[in-house]
Simulated scan of single mutants.
Amino acid sequence: MTPDDENDADRHFAATLAHGIDILLAYRPGEVLLGNRDFVQRTGLSKSTVARLTHTLVVLGYLRHEPSLGKYRLGAPVLAPAYPLLASMQIRQVARPLMERLAGEVGGAVSLGVRDRTQMIYVETSRSTDDLVVTPDIGAALPMLTTAIGKAWLCRVPAALRDPVLNRLRLEDADAFRRAEPRLAQARRELETKGYCSNRAEWRHDVFAFAVPLCRRVDSQWFVVNCGVRAPPGAFDAIQRAVGPRLVTMAHALESRLGLHETTGL
């Protein structure tokens, strides 16, 4: 059964609402304008359905229509639902000084992320400089199978939460899932022995990354701390020794500040 089949079997599922959200989620980093043809290709919806949804989203302000181009920009109201969520995440305020310190020590970017369907989303980030190969920002989305942060989440969470996500990833791209399976098994061993998962330029050829999942949930979510640095040729082992243990230490400090090692932690 596919995810769409599961939704069709749920009589409480509002398909029109879900399709409208899919339109808003069709934008990728760096993209400003998309047209109805783009939405059709990325969502699999019919032309007529997309036309109705984009019209409605324009009326509500979530999209801004550019008549001369026949395309749409995201509107400011898209930001409004995110603010209450971010403002309520106490972990961001607690983690920020620790993240800033580590980013300065390793000359990279340190981020805090959670899962969104089959990807990871940054909810906080600190960087030592803007002169980075990848400049992460709040709201940036990363794939799960080819990033350290995604593998760390998959290696930490309980099977009841992990297995449905793995199934969706398999259905989305069976070939990519098959290629990633050995690396995921390696990531589990790495987390057990070193306390972190690594990404040896798998997602981007110019970035090494390391990630540590927190030991327990915070506000019902599993958070992961991630650190990305430039990837000079042949330098992975040295960077791993310099960054990996520091990230583990930072994650443990964050857990202590949050009281996660106490029986009545968050």
Rank of each mutant, 00 (worst) to 15 (best):
T125M: 07
S126M: 13
S126H: 07
S126V: 09
R127D: 07
R127A: 14
S128V: 11
D131G: 00
D131S: 12
D131Q: 14
D131P: 00
L132D: 08
L132C: 09
L132I: 05
T135K: 14
T135I: 13
P136G: 09
I138F: 06
I138K: 10
G139P: 07
A140Y: 13
A140S: 08
A140I: 08
A141N: 09
A141M: 12
A141L: 13
L142C: 02
L142K: 07
P143M: 08
M144W: 12
M144P: 06
M144Y: 11
L145C: 05
T147A: 03
T147Q: 08
T147S: 10
A148T: 04
A148H: 05
G150H: 07
A152G: 07
W153G: 04
L154A: 05
L154M: 10
R156E: 15
R156W: 01
R156Q: 15
R156S: 14
R156Y: 00
R156K: 10
V157P: 06
V157M: 05
V157Y: 08
A159K: 12
A159C: 02
A159L: 13
R162W: 06
R162Y: 05
D163P: 03
D163N: 15
D163A: 13
P164S: 09
V165S: 06
L166P: 10
R168P: 00
R168N: 09
L169P: 10
L169A: 08
L169N: 08
R170Q: 11
L171P: 00
E172M: 07
E172L: 10
A174C: 01
A174F: 02
D175L: 12
D175H: 13
F177I: 02
R178M: 08
R179A: 07
A180M: 08
E181T: 14
P182F: 12
P182T: 13
P182D: 12
R183H: 15
A185Q: 14
A185N: 12
Q186S: 08
Q186L: 11
Q186V: 02
A187D: 05
R188G: 06
R188E: 15
R189S: 14
L191N: 10
E192P: 00
T193W: 00
K194N: 05
K194D: 01
G195D: 01
Y196C: 02
C197N: 05
C197W: 01
C197Q: 06
C197K: 04
S198W: 01
N199M: 02
R200E: 11
R200A: 07
A201Y: 03
R204C: 00
H205G: 10
D206K: 13
V207K: 11
V207S: 06
V207E: 04
F208I: 11
A209I: 03
A209G: 15
A209W: 02
A209V: 04
A211H: 03
A211R: 05
V212H: 12
C215T: 14
C215S: 14
R217F: 07
V218K: 04
V218H: 12
D219L: 09
S220W: 06
Q221S: 06
W222L: 05
W222Y: 13
F223P: 00
V224L: 05
V224E: 01
V225G: 02
G228K: 00
R230G: 14
P233M: 03
P233D: 03
G234I: 03
D237K: 02
D237G: 05
D237M: 02
I239R: 03
I239V: 13
I239L: 11
Q240P: 00
R241P: 01
A242D: 15
A242Q: 14
V243G: 10
V243C: 11
P245L: 11
R246S: 03
V248N: 03
